[in-house]
Structure formats: C-alpha cells, structure tokens
Design a protein around this nucleic acid. Structure first.
Lengths: 223, 223
DNA sequence: CGAAGGCTTGAGACCGCTCAAGACCCGTGG
DNA sequence: CCACGGGTCTTGAGCGGTCTCAAGCCTTCG
C-alpha cells in the first residue's frame, strides 16, 4: 500500500505524467506493471520481440549494441522519468539494443495495447511520449554529430561540460570504459584524452573525480 | 480545387494518416498549410526557432548539420510520407539541423498548437506520429551503430544493399558526396570503397549506376 | 569549344585503434 | 595490519584506416 503511494509520488514527479488528471493517472498506474531490476541485470536483449514499453522510475539503464569479440557499443544512458522501448508499438518489430541496469532500478511496464489505449484516452500522456521521443531523437542526433565532427579530446570535453557540477567538481557517473563507449572511443583513448586535458591545465582527475580549472577554455575547445 | 483533391489523395496514401476518419482528415488538411520548395531551397536552418512540424508529400529532403570550413554532415534523408520538425513541440527549442530540398518538394505544415489539438482529437494521428518518430529514432540508431562499428567498405556495402534494385541494378539517388556524408565518409573514401568493391568483383559502377554481381558476398561483408 | 562542377586518383600525414604490460584501487581474508 | 586477488585504469609502442591536400578526369551544359 505504501508502495503504491510511493510509486504514485514518483510518477507524479515524472514529466511523462505532467498534465495527466488524477483519475487517469490512477488508471495508468493500475494498468502498468512494476518491474525491479538488480544491478547488471538485463531488461531485454537485441533481437528479442517485445510488446511493452517501459518508464524508468529510479536508477539508470544503459542501452547498448552487443558486439561479438569486443565490448558493446553504448547508445544511450536512460535516467528516471524517461520512456523507452517505443519500438514495441511497431508490430512485429525486434529490439535493436540491449537494456541493462547500471544500478538497481524500478520501472513501470505497459503492454503496447494499453499504450494505444492510453494515447486515445489520455492526450497529455501522448503529448509527453512524443516530447520524450523527440528529446531522445535530438540527443542521438547530437551524438552522431559529435562522433562525426569532433576529435576524441573534444568529445571528452563536451561530455565533461555536460556533467552536473558541485562547485568546480564533477563525478563520472559510470565506469570510464562505459562512458568511453558512449562517446565512441576506446578506453585507452578516453584515458589519454583526460590526461591531455589535465596536462593542458584545464582539469585534474583523481579516479572518478574531475576538478574543473578553466571552464571557459574547455568550452573554447568545442568552437 | 483539383489541387485540394490531389493533395487529399496524396495524404490518404501516407501512412501518417492511416486510420484517420475522412472528417478528421478533412479537418487536418484544412488546418495544414501547403508549402512548396524548389530544388536546393532551404526549409529551415539550424539555430532558428520554429513552431511548425512538416509532413513531406513529395520529393526528398536532406537534414544536415552545417560545418564551417568543410561540407555539411548529412543526418537524414526524408522521403514522402514522413513527418519531421517534431522538436517544434518542445517550447522554446531551436532547430538542430538544416533542411534542404534535394528536389522540388511539396509539404504540409502544421502549427504546433494545431498539432497539440490533433493529438487530442485524432488519436490515430498521434499514434502515427509516434510510430514515425520511433522509426526515425531506430534509423538514427542504426547509423550510429554503423559509424562506430563498420569500416568504410562495410558502410558502403550496407548502403548499397539498402537501395531498391530493379533486376540486379540500382541507381544512387543523390550526389555521391552527399551519400558519403550520410555514411560519415569523405567523398574520396566513398569513391575508393566503391572501387574496392568493384575490384573484388562484387559490383560494377558506371556513374550513378551500380550493378550487383554477388549480393550474397556483399551481405557476407557485414557479418 | 570552353567552363563549371562533380568525381577519381595519388601521396603523405595523423588520429585513434590494437595489443601487451604494468599501476592502481578496493574488498576480502589471514 | 598486511598480503592477496580481481577488476579497472593507465601507459607505451606500433600499426592501419581514414583524412587532407592537390592534380587530373569526366560529364554536362551553355
């Protein structure tokens, strides 16, 4: 019971449910199924059929493309409040990526038929689904842009600047090799790029902690 | 008047209007504004604000990211029946890419407020918008995959295999430099890759015409 | 015929990758 | 407290694929 209330609170905070009336929210929550993932557990794998979409309530999930002989190519990090697996709405479609929990995660799962219903009955939800997809589309577009147009050091700089800072410090949220893959780099190249930024006096690195010494020059690298 | 009918026929054929009732289709067409583009004309540019989304009725459009000193990076080729510019639904958002007509084009433009209305009133349209976005998302994901994981020759082979063939021939639909950019390659590298495939006896190339000699081995390159 | 634009070809440089080894970090257990 | 072990991260050396730059070619069109 408190779980139910707890969940409701989490959803109300999610932008995906913004503008949804209480009664409809209740309906959505009733239809959606709770899913828990342990750290490193896979939600789905490339090639599987799937007729559900998912909304992430807590934790982070990694979408990646498996590669035989070599480590996977990370496509996207998903944060709480995001929806994914929309391809389930395309009949007969197979999933393109693996989804793995980077931490313990809570999710809500909706059967595709229920999503269709929800789109009909709850226009704000349809809105938000489209908004979320648009944002993810743009994010992918930026990734494509940076892979094609930026050098390794520039990609790393851009990534660092995107991280939330407290004071002039930031903490890398995942394994470095995982971040490297997201940036389209080998772990060695990521390491060397960090090191070069440090040698130039722009940052200093100790483990996952990054101290920013000159944000302006870091941004200037991208121009 | 015949224009109106003509347009209606085109839309009815578009998957975006599948499942939409005649009365609602009429309303949509009434609300949407016709846009014509000449070849090479720009529909919008990166950095502009925009409160419209577009549906392409005929012709092809190129989405690309402008690059000072060098040619633009092509992101996507849009074909008739596709919707784009969804980021207009995000308030205060700026466009990320240029949209340029590769041929004379006809489009339908919807103000974002009308799109919001349409999502409420015409659920099948909302469905199709989401479907279209999902498909484009996956397409971008595949591009990201191939840029990160495939060599130049493999990317070219994959692209060729995607082209519609009549008999064992295909025709490259755009300038080679444009296709090269879409694949994340320099024109020279694209040229050399085609040439290598030809040297291996898999294809032969004359101008924009490509003859396939061994489709199976071409596919085998991608494994 | 000449000009313009796209395409091809060649030579050389460079960035990022691969492979291999060593350093560091951290939890565990003696 | 220290030694150990597993995993990640770093460092080094060398290679290779793609890019860059610069001509020359080909087709198209006036």
């Amino acid at each position: 019971m408190t779980d139910r209330l707890n969940q409701k609170a989490k959803c109300a905070g999610s932008p995906l449910f913004e503008g949804v009336k209480a009664s409809q929210l209740a309906w959505l929550l009733n239809v959606g199924q709770n899913v828990q993932l342990k750290q490193r557990e896979y939600l789905f794998r490339r090639g599987q059929a799937c007729d559900q979409i998912f909304i992430l309530l807590s934790g982070h999930i990694k979408l990646s493309i498996p590669v035989e002989c070599g480590q996977d190519k990370v496509i996207e990090f998903l944060s709480p409040g995001e929806a994914f697996g929309e391809s389930a709405l395309l009949p007969g479609h197979l999933l393109l990526a693996d989804a793995q929990a980077l931490e313990p995660c809570e999710l809500l799962a909706f059967k595709s038929e229920d999503v269709r219903l929800a789109i009909e009955r709850v226009p704000p939800f349809a809105q938000q689904l489209i908004t979320n997809l648009s944002l993810r589309f743009e994010s992918l577009l930026r990734d494509l842009e940076s892979v094609s147009l930026l050098t390794a050091v520039q990609r790393v700089a851009a990534y660092l600047l995107r991280q939330p800072r407290v004071g002039n410090q930031a903490k890398l949220p995942f394994y470095k090799r995982t971040i490297a893959s997201k940036l389209g780099l080998q772990p060695e190249t990521f390491s060397r790029s960090l090191q070069q930024l440090a040698a130039d006096g722009l940052i200093s690195v100790r483990g996952a902690r990054v101290v920013f010494h000159d944000v302006a020059r870091l941004q200037a690298l991208l121009a």
